[in-house]
Structure formats: structure tokens, C-alpha cells
Design a protein around this nucleic acid. Structure first.
Lengths: 242, 242
DNA sequence: TCATCGGGTATACAATCGTCTACCGAAACA
DNA sequence: TGTTTCGGTAGACGATTGTATACCCGATGA
């Protein structure tokens, strides 16, 4: 062994913020996981080094990396849900009113505007939190059952929020609450992929947004068509060209 | 150091098949990645040990784990696409004929049968290859850009296959080829999640199948509704209750 | 028949890892 | 005021890792 007084000498400079050690560790882990490899395969010494702390400090705050993972997810997850809800409330105050499709054409137009707003919102959020998003999705299909469950629960929570908010703004005719929730779940999951595309292909931003909107509208169209096809025929709808 | 003549002593017995060393390594890597952790974070010694080979043998065949990864994906990916196509051709021979929706009700019923058949097919396939599926999806969102690109290309390839096969059986009215491809892509991606549910929750198998079918039908309904809503109204369709 | 070479092995080394034990200062609390 | 607890550090350990060098053997081919 060359020099056993290892660590704390290296190319990756510590994050060096005025936060607590626990925070520093979580931030370091997030940065490393986003750029280097999966959470579970991070080295305890590695993240401590990157946080500018002694390796043993990790033990003071966390049992394993699962432990650290759920702590991170607690923090960022609630921030995500709150952010999305708040942002989703904004347009509602801005003049949207509950549409009951008594005028189908108007209702459909409103649905389209709502879809556009929501898609932009999610994608902006992802762009603003690309590190957290990246590791989150990694863990969604990762090796740790704990993290997988936690991420699945988070996505389901988002779908539930979305359903509730949607019910306050848009009354789809003859579409039950459960049906709407199923649609929301599917949308949330699909947005995982659209978000990934969005992060990886900046040059296709506009196109990806259009695709996501189209997907959502297709689902709503389908849901209405399955229950009240005459509404769609009556609406003489103008579906956005491909 | 206790005993430097390490390796080859352990609880995980070698796979011990009559295959070549290269094959043995790939199989060992697949097994370990499916049960232990992500491909990229596997140890070279670890997989060699699990394959019953000398650590250095790895170098004879692969440069790194990305290299091994794309080799595995080459093998299993083509098997997947071939398997799906072959299975998709089967019902076509079994009496399905091209439907042009001149009789809307019949066309829609046929679409529903087709969706059911396809969903069952994919989910069966996933059950039969759960190891490969598990690590594949892991790598889809994993840390290696090489593996991510390869997996995305594979999924896109499946979507293309699906579109072509679909065009041979089902002529959706007024839905363009590009539109159909976009829908196929979305379906393939969503099936990633449905498959995950399917593997993780054996008790909900029937329910998950129904959800997947519903999702696909919803998309087709929506696609038709966007182009020819009068068809749906005329069909007096019987959408499966939720 | 002899050289080459592809695929497998043996050994060794430095680096890194997780974790154990011990020490320390400051804040909280009695 | 004394003491306990909390967050952080220091050093050491055995284990494991990736990789470099070198040997080996059977098939291939001249």
C-alpha cells in the first residue's frame, strides 16, 4: 500500500456549501449518481470524499444507500408533487373554468390547451431538476426493491394529484373517476419516456412537446369516444395535424 | 492478505455448461445482473468466478462491460424481435384477414381481438425471459450511454415491426403510416411498464392484461376519433367496461 | 515438422473498499 | 458546573478489485 492516509486528495473538488453534513452527503450522492453510476453502486468513501467529509461520517446519518436514497426521495419527491400541483393551479386561476362539455367543441379545445400547459410544465420541471430526475428514473428500474417501490409510489402519487386537479377543471362526459385515474397513471408513466427524450435530445424539444400533447389528447379522445362517440362527431373537432 | 490464491471458492456454483467461454461469461453476467446489480457495476472477477473461469479470460473476449452488454443485446434482441414477429404472424394465418373498416363494428371488434392477442404475446414473452428483460430495462435507463442507445434502438425496432405487421392486418381509416408508428412507439414503451408490473405482481396478472388491452384500444379509438369520428358513432361500439 | 496463435491459467501488485475502534469539540442538558 | 450526546475525524484491518506480465496447450497451417 502506497500511502494509507488516502482520500481527500483528488480531482473532484468537494461541493463545499454551508449546509449540514447530512445535506452535503445527499447532494454529493445525487451529483455522483447522476453523472457516474447507480445509487446502490456508489462507494461510501467516494461520496464522502466528494462531499469533503470523512468516510465514517456517512454512518452517523445513514445505514445504507437505500437509507440515503429514500431520504433523498422524500425531500425531492414532495418538492416535485408540490411544484406540480402549484403549477397546475396557476392556469386554473388564470381563467380556466370547469368545462362540462355542454358545448363539446369548446370543451375539447380547452382540453387541448390544458394538455399543452401540463406538458410544458412537466418538461420544464424535469429540465430544472435533471440530476434528480435522472437518478430517480434509474432507481425506478434499479436493483434496490426499496427504491423501486418508493419511486413507483411517487409516480402513483403524481397520477392521483393529476386526477384530482383534472376533475376540478375538466368534466369529461361519462368518464368515471377510476377511468380517469387509469389514464393519468398511463400518462405519468409515458411522460417518463418523453422526459428522457427531452433531456437527451435538446434539438427536438418542440417536436417532443408536440408528441406528448398528441399522446395525451389521443387518450382523452379515446376515453370520450368509448363512452360518448356522438360528442366527438358533433364537435367537428380540429385535431392537430401530425 | 489472507490467501492470495483467491477466487473459485464460494457459494455461487459455476454455471457449468458445455458452451464456449464467451457464452459462459455472457450467461454468468446475465444471471448476476438480473439478481445482483446493474451490468456496469458488475465486477470482472465476480462474473468470471460465477462462470467458473479465470478472471483474465474476460479480456480475451471483451474490452469492457459495455462490450459484453451489446454482445448480449445483439443475441437476445434479435431473438426478441424474431419471436414477436413470428408469434404475431401466427394469428394472421389463423383466419384474421385485412379489415378496412368498411364495416366499422366488425373492424373495431377485430382490433380488440388483435390487441388482446398482442398483449398476451408480449407478456408471455417477458415471463419466459425475465432475466434478460430485467437487465435490459435496467440498462434502458442505466448509466452507460452505449447500452441506453442500444436499448432505445431495440425498442424502436420493435415498434417498427409492429407497425408493419399491423398494416398487414388492420387498415385504420384515415390514419397515416407515421401516425401509426407514433402510436406503436408509445405502446411499446408503455408495455415496458406493464411488463414490469406483470413480473412483479403475479396475483394481478389478469387485471394487468385488461389494463394493457384497454390502453391500446383507447389509443386506437382516439386515433380513429381524431380522423373519422362518425365511424365510431356509427359503430355503436361496445367498449369493455372498466 | 515446426511456428503461430487463440483461448485459458497463474501470480502478483497497487488501489480502493467497508468497517472497526478510538479520539475530539461543542452543544444540550442536569 | 458537570456530563452526556451528537456530529465529525484519524488510523488501521482484511477483503476485493482491475490489470499487467508471463506461462501453457491444442489446433491450424506452412
Amino acid at each position: 500500500m502506497a500511502k494509507n492516509s488516502d482520500d481527500r486528495g483528488g480531482k473532484d473538488k468537494p461541493v463545499e456549501r454551508t449546509t449540514s453534513g447530512r445535506q452535503k452527503l445527499m447532494e454529493a450522492a445525487l451529483e455522483l449518481a447522476a453523472t457516474t453510476r447507480s445509487l446502490a453502486s456508489l462507494g461510501l468513501r467516494e461520496v464522502a470524499r466528494h462531499a469533503g467529509l470523512n468516510p465514517n461520517t456517512f454512518y452517523r446519518h445513514f445505514k445504507d444507500f437505500d437509507d440515503l436514497g429514500v431520504a433523498m426521495l422524500d425531500e425531492l419527491g414532495t418538492e416535485l408533487r408540490a411544484g406540480l400541483r402549484e403549477a397546475r393551479m396557476r392556469p386554473a386561476k388564470k381563467g380556466f373554468r370547469l368545462s362540462d362539455f355542454s358545448n363539446p367543441a369548446e370543451g375539447l379545445a380547452q382540453a387541448q390547451a390544458l394538455a399543452r400547459e401540463s406538458v410544458g410544465l412537466v418538461l420544464d420541471f424535469v429540465m430544472d431538476h435533471r440530476e434528480a430526475y435522472t437518478v430517480g428514473i434509474r432507481e425506478l428500474h434499479g436493483t434496490s426493491p426499496v427504491m423501486r417501490k418508493a419511486m413507483q409510489a411517487l409516480l402513483d402519487g403524481v397520477a392521483v394529484d393529476m386526477t384530482e386537479d383534472l376533475l376540478g377543471v375538466l368534466m369529461l362526459p361519462a368518464v368515471s373517476h377510476e377511468e380517469l385515474l387509469a389514464v393519468a397513471r398511463v400518462i405519468v408513466r409515458q411522460m417518463v419516456f418523453f422526459s428522457m427524450d427531452y433531456l437527451e435530445q435538446p434539438s427536438r424539444h418542440a417536436e417532443i412537446k408536440r408528441e406528448a400533447e398528441r399522446f395525451i389528447l389521443l387518450l382523452f379522445w379515446g376515453a370520450i369516444a368509448a363512452r360518448a362517440p356522438e360528442l366527438l362527431a358533433a364537435a367537428k373537432l380540429k385535431f392537430p395535424a401530425i
